[in-house]
Design a protein around this nucleic acid. Structure first.
Length: 730
DNA sequence: ACGGCACGGGG
DNA sequence: GTGTACGTGCCGT
């Protein structure tokens, strides 16, 4: 019998691996013995001494084997140490480390995931096809059109009693499973839920906020009712700890994961990959990273690519250096001198332009890594001191003898993404599935570049990061030169995109660039008109703020309020309505003609705000918080809302968002200044002038190149109001 | 004027 | 089990 690897985890009590296989008839639970190994590097004589010392503390299954301890290095002798007790891996490594002679950086395969170790040893992977019994692989994760089982699922929703923020003490009102509503006394709801899950036996349970609230909540409610709710196929959840961490330039909060056994819990809100690329995106990444579906759903694309790099390294005879970095050395390198304006070439020409082409490179940075063999072990390698392959500006020499680990991992990902985009274009009922897979891969490719400059990445190196941006600048500059030679005017260019105006043959230009550079240049489209916005203080073109209308009517908008998650719905609606109004224009002159009438959209919104009738949820402000309440040094709206929440016993973690209505933006009193969203009744007085001000700023953001900056709109609004008052007096 | 604070990008 | 650094604009003091 054959089936797919649905779930896998370590049984920490028995020191065995548990694998759940989905067959066409149901699921099979497979338990196998598995002994993980760690590796120690030391001079030959010390290896024997170490062996003896280990035997003295009861670690007797050791052997000397040959492995590569660094990328691109030859195999050397290392001591392989079997660790039968799974929970002893880390402590044993710490012990060996403390024995001194073996110094830092000489322990390997210490911090690898158990599932990944096991999969690598067996040659199987998440959602891969295997034979039962024995879990022999019948699949390859390089396959593009692989078979997948139809997974059954339920959607779980929970309603709680109580107002405002739900807490563990609020009883359950009802539970919805798909469209079935379970209600009645709480104990009965929980029993019905348990029966239903057992009867349906789904492979996947979807929730919204299951990790951050509902799964631990249901468990607590079950305990209150003297019962034990079991949502998995086997007892016990695999919970992790929630934490705030610094990533992507900001603090984010990751709630504790609540993973089931033998059944996949996907929290739509805590899974970035699921949100962006759905179940098929997750399956694709599970296969490539070799990590079980449920676990990969909680990983960032950066961790997924890191796992793929580990897999490739292990497959080519490497052991993986123990990464002992603790969060405390998680600061940004002060001496980092990367010109990250790397992508910037042309200052955008502020104002409206018509008949503009946008072209961009297919996955530029990953393509550069592949085309130029950029990898930690290939940039300034020791084997090619006279390499003629060098990085522009920087002069780093790149290995000509061997293909690096990073390109080896990237080639299949780039090829797959291209193939899926092509398959999607061909149409057919699987189009959606291919689209999801392509999206997941896109994110993996995007994060791969950042990862090379990340200090704590296993395979990161800052010179790679520098080299990639240097090649990128060179490529964009050459592409712009060729465009100008072909008679195009370069209006703007950044990272991997160019905006060109002119009558030249754009398709033939793209082909020439593809040939010349070796990376495909895509035609994104032609704008009927596009507006590049200025930097508000300097008046010079801002790099990433523009909006435009493609032929066909689609709008593309970057960097302005509608794209920001801290914009209240009111301002979002205002900008949308103004853009919709302006999109009637077919060229630049028509656009300019529509500007005066677009101000009427603003007037309508301002009037509605002042009438006091705007629904409060359209006025709710949302800001993510970067620290705990007491760490804020400056009083502002968010702090006022946080204080309110704490007054009522609720504490937010850094990375979570605070939501509030502005009631009197000038007040120094928290309760008069704002009202935190959970405490809103819906008929609070709001600070109308403050919201009108936000609307004015929203409008000014769109119209500043056309004689209507914030102050000008402010003055116009004042004039209109006094005129209005005069009319009323007469 | 200046520091504190939050956000985007990529499709 | 976590991409960087930077440009940008608003707000409070």
């Amino acid at each position: 019998m054959n089936g797919w690897v649905l779930d896998c985890y370590a049984d920490m009590a028995e020191n065995r691996m548990v694998t759940w296989v989905r067959t066409n008839h149901g699921v099979e639970r497979v338990v196998e013995d598995f002994v993980p190994r760690i590796y120690v590097q030391a001079p030959k004589d010390r290896l024997e001494k170490l062996r003896g010392d280990l035997a003295l503390i009861g670690v007797d299954d050791t052997s000397v084997v040959r492995r590569r301890t660094g990328l691109g290095e030859r195999e050397r002798e290392v001591l392989s140490v079997a660790v039968r007790d799974y929970s002893a891996i880390q402590p044993l490594a710490v012990t060996i480390d403390s024995w001194g002679d073996y110094r830092r950086n000489l322990l390997y395969d210490v911090d690898l995931r158990m599932d990944q170790r096991y999969f690598l040893r067996k040659g199987i992977f998440g959602m891969g096809l295997v034979e039962l019994p024995g879990l022999r692989s019948l699949d390859s994760n390089l396959r593009i059109d692989y078979p997948i089982p139809s997974l059954s699922s339920i959607e779980l929703r929970v309603q709680t009693k109580g107002v405002g923020i739900p807490t563990f003490d609020d009883p359950i009102t009802s539970v919805e499973v798909n469209d079935i509503v379970l209600d009645g006394p709480e104990g009965s709801i929980l029993e019905q839920l348990q029966d239903l899950v057992r009867a349906e036996d789904p492979d996947i349970i979807y929730t919204a906020k299951g990790d951050s609230f509902y799964l631990p909540y249901l468990r607590k409610r079950a305990a209150e009712n003297g019962m034990e709710l079991e949502l998995g196929r086997e007892r016990g959840e695999r919970t992790s700890r929630g934490k705030s961490f610094f990533t992507y330039g900001r603090i984010v909060y990751k709630p504790p994961g609540h993973k089931l056994r033998g059944r996949v819990h996907i929290d739509r809100e805590s899974s970035f990959t699921f949100r962006e690329s759905g179940l098929h995106g997750l399956i694709e990444l599970s296969r490539l990273s070799m990590i079980p579906l449920q676990d990969v759903s909680r990983l960032s694309p950066g961790s997924a690519i890191s796992a793929m790099q580990v897999n490739e390294a292990v497959r080519t005879g490497h052991v993986i250096l123990w990464k002992k970095n603790r969060p405390e050395d998680f600061k940004t390198a002060g001496a980092l001198i990367v010109s990250d304006r790397g992508g910037f070439i042309y200052e955008p020409r502020v104002g409206v332009h018509d008949g503009v082409w946008e072209v961009d490179f297919f996955s530029l940075y990953p393509s550069i890594m592949v085309a130029h063999n950029i990898s930690p072990e290939t940039v300034m390698c020791s084997c090619c001191p006279r390499s003629s392959h060098t990085v522009p500006e920087l002069g780093y020499r790149i290995c000509e003898k061997r293909t690096g680990l990073v390109p080896r991992v990237l080639v299949p990902i780039l090829n797959r993404r291209r193939a899926y985009k092509e398959l999607k274009k061909q149409g057919g009922h699987k189009g959606d599935m291919y689209d999801q897979r392509a999206k997941a891969l896109k994110w993996v490719l995007v994060t791969c570049f950042g990862y090379t400059g990340y200090r704590n990445a296993r395979f990161g190196r800052i010179e790679c990061h520098e080299s990639i941006t240097a090649f990128g600048r060179d490529i964009l500059m050459r592409s712009a030169d060729i465009a100008e030679r072909r008679g195009f005017e370069v209006l703007h260019g950044i990272v991997d995109s160019l905006w060109l105006k002119g009558d030249g043959n754009i398709r033939s230009y793209c082909e020439e660039i593809g040939r010349e550079i070796g990376i495909p240049l895509n035609l994104e489209g032609r704008y009927e008109w596009i507006v590049f916005l200025p930097n508000i203080s300097t008046g010079v073109g801002a790099l990433n703020r523009y909006y435009g209308k493609f032929e066909g009517g689609e709008l593309k908008v970057r960097g302005i309020a509608v794209r920001r998650k801290d914009t209240p719905t009111l301002v979002e609606d205002l900008q949308h309505d103004m853009l919709k109004h302006l999109s009637a224009a077919g060229d630049a002159p028509e656009f300019e003609e529509l500007i005066p009438s677009s101000l009427e959209v603003l007037d309508r919104h301002a009037e509605e705000v002042r009438s006091g009738t705007v629904s409060r949820d359209r006025l709710v402000m949302r800001k993510s918080i970067s620290r705990k309440l007491e760490e804020y040094v400056q009083f502002n709206d968010s702090v006022a809302a946080l204080r309110q929440l704490r007054d009522r016993g609720f504490e937010l973690q850094p990375g979570q968002s605070v939501e509030y209505l502005i009631m009197d933006s000038k007040s120094r009193s928290s309760w008069q200044r704002v009202r935190a969203a959970p405490f809103l009744d819906g008929d609070e007085r709001y600070d109308a002038e403050r919201y009108v001000d936000l609307a004015l700023r929203g409008a000014a953001e769109l119209l500043s190149p056309f004689g209507w900056n914030y102050q000008q709109l402010r003055d116009r609004d004042d004039r209109r109001r006094s005129k209005h008052r005069q009319e009323r007096c007469l």
